[in-house]
């Protein structure tokens, strides 16, 4: 069981999309990620470098025929971080707000449980779709 843990590196919008995409894949081609997210080469390269430096992704480059190809996959560390982040988001969505302990010791203030919103979003495959 993965421990719920908010990961700020992953939570940034573009990186969240990249990591979520890689989370469902064994590997993905650079081109597939770029086209799926509708972002430029440079933006994707920059984000992948950040994730690679954090040890979250592994990047492999090779030539297929005369074409350079780049494959990206989540590292075991990245997968654990991603799954922990998903669990934390699920907790927040379920509980209607929560406090988050950050790596630097600071705290993210909890949202008081307000009027019940949709409280059944238990997974990305559940009500979160709506």
């Amino acid at each position: 069981m993965v421990t719920p843990r908010f990961d700020e590196l992953i939570h940034a919008r573009t990186r969240l999309s990249i990591v979520a995409l890689l989370g469902a894949a064994d590997w993905a081609e650079f081109r597939f990620i770029r086209e799926s997210l509708g972002i430029s080469d440079s933006v994707l390269s920059k984000q992948l470098t950040l994730l690679e430096n954090a040890g979250y992704v592994k990047i492999r480059k090779a030539f297929v025929g005369k074409r350079p190809r780049t494959w990206v996959k989540l590292s075991p560390t990245g997968r654990v971080a991603f799954e922990g982040h998903v669990r934390k988001l699920q907790e927040i969505a379920l509980q209607g707000g929560t406090s988050l302990a950050r790596d630097d010791g600071t705290t993210i203030t909890a949202d008081p449980p307000g009027p019940p919103e949709r409280s059944t979003a238990s997974s990305p495959g559940g009500d979160a779709r709506a």
Partner: peptide, 15 residues
């Protein structure tokens, strides 16, 4: 603050 709506939005994006 991480609002439940924001968490749900992130989960929807992941999905």
């Amino acid at each position: 603050a991480m609002k439940p709506a924001e968490a749900r939005k992130a989960l929807a994006e992941m999905e």
